[in-house]
Amino acid sequence: MQFEFNSSEPIYRQVAEQIEDAIASGGFEEGAQIPSTTEISKEFHINPATVLKGMNIAVSKQLIEKRRGLGMFVKQGSRQRIVEAKRDGFFDAFIVNLVREARNLNISEEELLDLVKRGYSQ
């Protein structure tokens, strides 16, 4: 697992995001066990309660589940759920900024669409 943390966003949210990213990228496969709270805590020097809070966010998003006595496992279908959630947020997260920046640079709608097409053709 390759976690990287920045210091200006709450750590528990970053833990949840990193787990999500690892599942989306295939780093954590569906049905596979992920590192325990203690392991993540020790490895990245994060308070275990904070790690647990991040894990619980991932649990509430139906991405991972706890198996009693065994640990945390990636849920079946979680990757699909992440993709769907990301699609839902795609407009706000990327398009709004893209259009704003294009306007600042005086790029017209047609020019922007051309650029998008060029991006796809690469």
């Binding site: 943390f5 210091s7 750590i11 709270t37 203690t38 805590s41 020790k42 490895e43 990245f44 020097h45 994060i46 308070n47 275990p48 309660a49 904070t50």
Partner: peptide, 29 residues
């Protein structure tokens, strides 16, 4: 690492007094 390992094994109260904040920022609650 040892501190957090020992804390996980045997939870108890820790008070870390320091001026090196960055190092403990994520460890303390």
């Amino acid at each position: 690492t040892e501190l957090l390992d020992s804390y996980a094994d045997n939870p108890r109260t820790f008070i870390l007094s320091t001026h090196l904040i960055e190092e403990v920022a994520n460890i303390i609650s």
